[in-house]
Computed example of a mutant assay.
Amino acid sequence: MPEGLRADARRNYARILAVAEEEVAAHGAGASLEQIARTAGVGSATVRRHFPTRQALLEAVSRKRIEALCNRARDLAGSGDSRDAMLEWLSDVVAYCVSARGLAAALSYDGNRADPAHENVCSAALEEAGDPLLRRAVEDGAVAKGVTVADLITLIVGIVLATESYPDPAGRADRLFRLAVAGLSPQS
């Protein structure tokens, strides 16, 4: 919650955020801002004052999930096989994105931004948290040099957004993620 707000503004913020979490869970990233305002009992200008863009609203709704994913990356950073640790974390990111409607959209690059890594709070946090996992896997020769966490997040976002309308989006997203990780070559 932003600091320095009056008590009534803090209450409005909390109420808008709670309603937005429910609306995004039910309707995804395209949840109606007007419906959020009506349900929260505030005007649409109040919603826009607290969340000037849809991206700002999605980032606020996703903040707790992003923090959990960052904590998970830190937990895995020094454990076991570096490739397995990185893939376990990335699988968690896929699972969170599938289960938390709107999270993939919160992580996606908006072409209107000059520098997506610094403009997108959610992606920037995940990139920072995942970097030690990826760096260790590259150092161990388990992942090709030049791969970035931003590349991997973009891949995950694409997979999640492409599979969200499938009857089993989680299963389909996981399958496509595993296929992307393994590549198209037959296993020997």
Score class of each variant (00 low, 15 high):
residue 117 A to H: 00
residue 146 G to K: 11
residue 80 G to T: 02
residue 12 N to R: 10
residue 176 L to P: 01
residue 117 A to G: 13
residue 111 G to K: 09
residue 10 R to L: 05
residue 17 L to Q: 04
residue 164 E to R: 10
residue 52 P to L: 11
residue 84 D to A: 08
residue 141 G to R: 04
residue 133 L to P: 04
residue 130 G to H: 05
residue 135 R to F: 05
residue 22 E to N: 10
residue 1 M to C: 06
residue 52 P to M: 11
residue 145 K to S: 13
residue 141 G to S: 07
residue 123 S to E: 06
residue 169 P to Q: 06
residue 28 G to N: 09
residue 58 L to W: 10
residue 9 A to R: 14
residue 97 C to N: 12
residue 47 V to T: 05
residue 29 A to G: 15
residue 175 R to P: 00
residue 34 E to A: 14
residue 182 A to P: 02
residue 12 N to Y: 03
residue 154 T to W: 01
residue 187 Q to Y: 10
residue 164 E to G: 01
residue 67 E to S: 14
residue 52 P to K: 08
residue 96 Y to Q: 13
residue 36 I to M: 03
residue 77 A to R: 14
residue 14 A to H: 01
residue 49 R to Y: 15
residue 22 E to H: 10
residue 100 A to I: 06
residue 8 D to H: 12
residue 140 D to Q: 13
residue 71 N to L: 14
residue 172 R to L: 10
residue 183 G to P: 04
residue 149 V to C: 06
residue 47 V to R: 10
residue 187 Q to I: 13
residue 15 R to E: 14
residue 30 G to L: 08
residue 21 E to G: 09
residue 81 D to F: 09
residue 186 P to I: 08
residue 99 S to W: 04
residue 66 I to W: 01
residue 62 S to F: 01
residue 124 A to H: 13
residue 58 L to N: 05
residue 186 P to Y: 09
residue 186 P to S: 13
residue 179 L to W: 12
residue 62 S to N: 03
residue 111 G to P: 02
residue 143 V to L: 05
residue 85 A to S: 15
residue 65 R to L: 09
residue 97 C to E: 11
residue 172 R to H: 06
residue 112 N to A: 14
residue 5 L to Y: 03
residue 181 V to L: 03
residue 147 V to D: 06
residue 160 V to W: 10
residue 37 A to E: 05
residue 100 A to V: 11
residue 20 A to I: 09
residue 47 V to K: 12
residue 151 D to M: 14
residue 24 V to E: 06
residue 56 A to R: 14
residue 86 M to S: 09
residue 72 R to M: 04
residue 158 G to F: 04
residue 84 D to H: 02
residue 90 L to S: 03
residue 123 S to D: 01
residue 166 Y to R: 14
residue 59 E to I: 00
residue 111 G to F: 04
residue 53 T to G: 00
